[in-house]
């Protein structure tokens, strides 16, 4: 109880003082997760839309695989990216291991299946409604993909937020491929892990509270934008 109280006070102090080290870590966390979200969205959303509209042999296998990959343990994603980016690995010459770029890749690998699987579900319902009309207009599956992505934009925002939440809460993969290097690849979650292992549980919890507030803020902002846009566009 005492620890929880002091964690709360420490969190308030961190924010009040605008602690420079923490702000840098927070900034890196947000940039890494947003960059990963951008990459994952560019790949995952069209993939989800295509799976919603297209019927081809092996589609069910892809759908089931994506659903299974949603549960991919972050450490496994991290390990995969680690082995790829290691100097002994096939992409070693990129020199990306233990950099923010590696963390972006790991998070993107982790959340692309989530965005694809969730957007497939959302867009399949929309496609059910649109299919006859779009075919009546002469639109094939390829033309339907951008239409569904645009018309499903409000539902997809929720999908994106789910991906962002998973990316920003992730620690196992980024600590592996980023190395938790102070001032370079230390994110909120790896800092929390570090403070926990130093036994400074109140500080770790305080950092966690700050992260939660930020993620909450991002969600609230997205929700407000969505409501405004929804009111204007229907």
């Amino acid at each position: 109880m005492q620890d929880l109280g002091s964690a709360f006070m420490a969190a308030i102090a961190l924010v009040r003082d605008g602690d420079a080290g923490m702000l840098a870590i927070l900034g890196l966390s947000l940039r890494v997760s947003l960059a990963a979200l951008g990459i994952a969205a560019v790949v995952g959303l069209p993939l989800g839309a295509l799976l919603a509209v297209a019927r081809f042999p092996g589609r069910r296998v892809v759908v089931v695989s994506l659903n299974a990959l949603m549960g991919l343990p972050p450490v496994v994603a991290g390990l995969l990216v680690y082995l790829l980016l290691s100097r002994s690995g096939p992409l070693g010459h990129w020199g990306l291991l233990f950099t923010p770029g590696a963390m972006v890749i790991a998070q993107a690998v982790l959340i692309t299946p989530i965005l694809a699987a969730l957007s497939r579900g959302v867009l399949e319902a929309l496609w059910e409604e649109y299919a006859e009309a779009l075919r009546s207009f002469g639109a094939g599956p390829w033309r339907a993909v951008p239409t569904l992505l645009w018309d499903g934009r409000f539902a997809l925002l929720t999908v994106l937020l789910a991906g962002f939440g998973r990316a920003s809460a992730e620690v196992g993969a980024v600590i592996l491929v980023g190395g938790n290097i102070e001032g370079f690849t230390r994110t909120m979650t790896t800092a929390i892990a570090l403070e926990t292992s130093k036994g400074d549980l109140p500080l770790a919890l305080a950092l966690g509270l700050v992260l939660m507030v930020i993620v909450l803020g991002v969600n609230a902002l997205a929700q407000v934008l969505r409501d405004v846009a929804l009111r204007r566009a229907g």
């Binding site: 409604e129 002469g138 639109a139 239409t147 645009w150 018309d151 409000f154 566009a233 229907g234």
Partner: peptide
């Protein structure tokens, strides 16, 4: 009626663009 989640005008233009 299957209307797109867009404005009235955009609904009119969409199939014409496809055509």
């Amino acid at each position: 009626p299957v209307l797109l989640r867009r404005s009235v005008l955009a609904n009119l233009r969409y199939p014409m663009a496809l055509a």
